[in-house]
Nucleic acid binder design. Structure first.
Lengths: 197, 197
DNA sequence: GACCAATGTAAGCAGTTGCTTACAAGGCGC
DNA sequence: GCGCCTTGTAAGCAACTGCTTACATTGGTC
């Protein structure tokens, strides 16, 4: 009987189970602190299959990150990007993978696949954010704002009880946005000039 | 001859060499990514002696961090704390251990000695920074500012060439201070009230 | 039913980690 | 000179990591 309960001998389903498990664990613990054994166990799949289907932990990470983390860049108008990013980061009940973006951005190390992905992702966000200001050091300003997001994500992931973990989401967003505005807002005249075009 | 060149059979010097090497490496790579073998090699000392004199990697880390990272808290008047912290973080030629504070604050994990030290250190800085505002959510504001410092340190340690790495130190400080001021400054009247006392 | 590629499994390899142990050697008190 | 605690050394252990290999099992094809 082909339609056996559960799934056996179904490579597509196995691949998908590995991808799902990897997505969840990478988002939760980051690349370095996630183990291939953890992923396989979490997927209910033999560890060797992970390497059969993905080749290496690096490649699995790349597969997980393919296309992920950039949805906000495409959907959001730049003015609302920071707010949306913060809201996703702070939301109470994230779906699996929702935090992939943040875990990826704050990954450590200069080797391994994670470093390249982090850099590419960071560059994309810096580019988007720097479009919000006309200051000549726009990239620096954008990078500072991104660093703030990364730092907040960092602190939230390590501290279990400090205010950041429990505080009102809207309040945090309000505070960060108001402060970031001093870095990213255009000057009045230049904003007007821009509109005239 | 007791006064042999170099040092041999000198436990104090051996301990000190280990401490120095550990200080430098922990500051550079953080707790998790520093190896006891690295430390011993860097100190030119047998690895077993590290455990004889310090007991464990955790304990060595605690010994390194004992009293370190809080100098700025004691010296600086609160109003200048953030600026001084930023300046130390961004300075071009730090002495060994100068970055211990930042590497400690951005250490990962919830176990190991590093987590407790990070928390204690973070709490101290939050306390100092929150004294700068009279808002009732002062702790949250202070934690956000600390998260920013941590994020900047993070980004600088991973990106090799983005603006943050090379940009003008004073410009970065100016930008961060001006933005942070919206979070930490007192309202006019309350600052005056404070002065009257 | 026989073949055979695709799928799944168990065991293990090599490298790294923190830490331990068994031992050699120096140097001080006597 | 002798004993013995202190200091230093080399080797290795157990746990963990990413990854491989040798082998069983399944199920479609003919």
């Amino acid at each position: 009987m082909t339609a056996e309960p559960g799934r056996r001998r179904d490579s597509a389903a196995t691949r998908a189970a590995l991808l799902d498990a990897a997505t969840e664990l990478f988002a939760e613990r980051g690349f370095a602190r996630t183990t291939v054994r953890d992923i396989a166990a979490h997927a209910g799949v033999n560890q060797a299959l992970l390497f059969r289907y993905f080749g290496s932990k690096d490649a699995l990470y790349a597969a997980v990150m393919a296309g992920q983390g950039r949805e906000l860049l495409e959907v959001e108008q730049p003015e609302r990007l920071l707010e949306t990013v913060l809201r996703r980061m702070l939301e109470k009940a994230p779906r699996p993978g929702d935090h992939l973006l943040f875990t990826a951005l704050r990954s450590e190390g200069v080797d391994s696949a994670a470093a390249e992905i982090r850099k590419a992702l960071g560059d994309d966000y810096i580019r988007a954010l720097s479009a919000l200001t006309d200051a000549e050091d726009g990239d620096l300003r954008a990078e500072l704002v991104l660093a703030w997001v990364i730092g907040i994500s960092m602190v939230r992931s390590t501290s279990a009880k400090e205010p950041l973990k429990s505080a009102n989401t809207e309040e945090i967003i309000r505070l960060v946005l108001s402060a970031a505005r001093t870095l990213l807002e255009r000057t009045e005249e230049q904003a007007l000039t821009e509109m005239e075009r």
